[in-house]
Structures are given as structure tokens and as C-alpha cells.
Simulated assay, not measured.
Amino acid sequence: PNSVLSVSNAPFGDAFAYMYGPVAGRIVTAFMIFGCAGALIAWQFTLGELLRESAGEGYFPEIFGKVTKDGVPVKGMIVMVLIQLIMIFFTISPTMVKQFDVLIQLATVDNLVPYVLAMAALDIMQKEAGHNERTTRLAAVIGGAYSMYATYQCGMDAVTAGMMTVLLGYMIYGVYAGQKPYTGHL
């Protein structure tokens, strides 16, 4: 029933428990936890690689560019985990569900900014590549509009906090990008 799902900490597990029994509910909940953990780990490695490459180009501090003998940017990933822990403390909420919602909304806003920037730059990238696809341009406009809608749906608290983190990132970028010799391309 909606009254149960609307207050549930594990709505998928509760739905399966209701339909197929408590064991099925626990199995589905476990899979959801594993899925979320896997996604978070994958994002950590993606972020580590993004920062490693950016540090190599001179856009972020050198610590993000240091890698192990296997090519893994462990030190940069540790710095990011510490920053993320600080963000967790700044978003402490009365319940774990509320905390999760706040962090998801903040991450959504922060991740939509580069998507919108990429979609805004698509026309220029197409022209430089010798293409001029109207369908791609239309998809970028639709994607940009949806990204704006998704940002709005996160709420003003998430937008404000997200913009603060984006602006902080731009400031860090400005400090480190300014140390790189200008070649005519950013």
C-alpha cells in the first residue's frame, strides 16, 4: 500500500516482501544495497581519474595527479573522500533517509552543471569536428532543458549548496589553470 511505501526506508524490499514474502524482500534490499555501493565505488574511480587527468593538465593540485605503480590515483581519491566526509557533516539530517536525499540532491545539482556546459558547447564541438547535425543539436537542447528541470526539482537548498561547491571548484580551477602557460586553448 502507498501508506507503507511512502514512509519506508526500503520501498523496493517492502514491495517484494509484500508480494513474495519477507525473504524475497530481504534479498531485493540486499541487491539494492550492493547496487548502490557498486555505483558509489565506480563514481569514486571515475572522479579519481577525472581529477588525475585534470591535475596532469595543470588544472588541479599535483596531489590528484600522483598515481601508484598500477596507475591508480590513491592520494587524490583519499583527499576527495575527506572532502566528501566534510560535506556529509555539513548536510547532517535527522534521519539517514533525509541525509541520503540531501546528498543525492547535492550530487545531482553538481553533476548536472558539466552536462549543461557540455550540451551548451556541443554546437562548437560539432563545427570544429566538421559536423553540423540538427538532430544532435535538438537532443542537446532537450537534454539541457531536462537538466534545468532536474536541477529545479532538487530544491533551492540543493541548488544553493551545489552552486557553492561549483563556484569553489571554479576558484580552485582558476588558481591552478593560471599557473599553466597560456596556449590559446583552455
Rank of each mutant, 00 (worst) to 15 (best):
Q153L: 08
F45W: 14
T165A: 15
L103W: 10
S93G: 01
L122Q: 02
Q126P: 03
P11I: 09
V159G: 04
P181M: 04
F89S: 06
M148V: 15
A129L: 09
L112G: 11
S3K: 03
P73N: 12
P73K: 11
L138I: 15
M171I: 11
Q84M: 07
Q105E: 10
Y152G: 00
A30T: 14
E133H: 10
I104T: 11
A158W: 15
M163I: 14
T135S: 05
M32R: 00
T136L: 15
L117Y: 09
I142D: 03
V141Q: 00
Q105A: 13
A145C: 13
T46Y: 10
G25A: 09
Y152M: 05
A30Q: 03
G21D: 12
T68D: 14
I33T: 11
K69W: 01
V72M: 13
I41V: 15
D110L: 07
K98R: 03
V67G: 00
F34Y: 11
F16G: 02
A129V: 01
T108R: 04
F45K: 02
V4Q: 14
T135N: 01
I142A: 07
V175L: 03
A118H: 07
N132D: 15
I88G: 10
Y152H: 11
A10N: 13
A161C: 11
T136W: 13
